[in-house]
């Protein structure tokens, strides 16, 4: 339906927005909604302006959808309101699950790297480095979206 360049523009936009959102099911849900919204709006515009280039039309659509920063800001506002209502226990549970998930991924990735390199990369060293990256990424994202 849409050409390769248009698809690339959409995926770039989706990627930029994803980077500004936290790792959560809610954010994944939002991204899925955004993608279908963009395609739907684009299809409408193509139908109304069949001679116009898809690239111009998708840029119009993305302008109407808003910048990734607009969306992340609104998402953070809604999350803050929700968080204020949720209990401390829920928040603690969320952070523990998130930390455990990051640890499991780091261990698996370290094991793969260590195996592939025949032990040239030390397993425990790789785990520590990957966990450090996970924590840094966590802080950067939290700062970007104003998460506590």
């Amino acid at each position: 339906m849409v050409d390769g360049e248009t698809e690339r523009i959409i995926e770039d936009y989706i990627r930029k927005t994803s980077r500004l959102l936290p790792d959560s099911f809610a954010a994944e849900d939002l991204i899925a909604d955004l993608r279908s919204h963009i395609y739907e709006a684009l299809t409408d515009k193509i139908r109304d302006n069949p001679t116009e280039s898809h690239k111009n039309l998708v840029l119009e659509v993305l302008d109407e959808v808003g910048t990734p920063e607009d969306i992340a800001e609104e998402f953070a506002l809604e999350q803050i309101e929700e968080t204020e209502q949720s209990s401390t226990d829920d928040r603690f549970q969320y952070y523990v699950v998130r930390l455990v998930a990051a640890f499991v991924v780091a261990v698996l990735a370290a094991w793969v790297v260590s195996t592939i390199t025949d032990g040239a990369v030390d397993f425990f060293f790789a785990v520590v480095v990957l966990m450090a990256f996970a924590v840094i990424e966590w802080f950067v994202r939290a700062k970007q979206i104003g998460e506590p």
């Binding site: 939002l30 808003g66 800001e73 506002l77 809604e78 999350q79 929700e82």
Partner: peptide, 16 residues
């Protein structure tokens, strides 16, 4: 009228 993308966090909130 709002930036259309900002509608989805609101919908998510109403779902929650």
């Amino acid at each position: 009228q709002i930036k259309e993308g900002t509608l989805y966090p609101i919908l998510h909130r109403l779902r929650k």
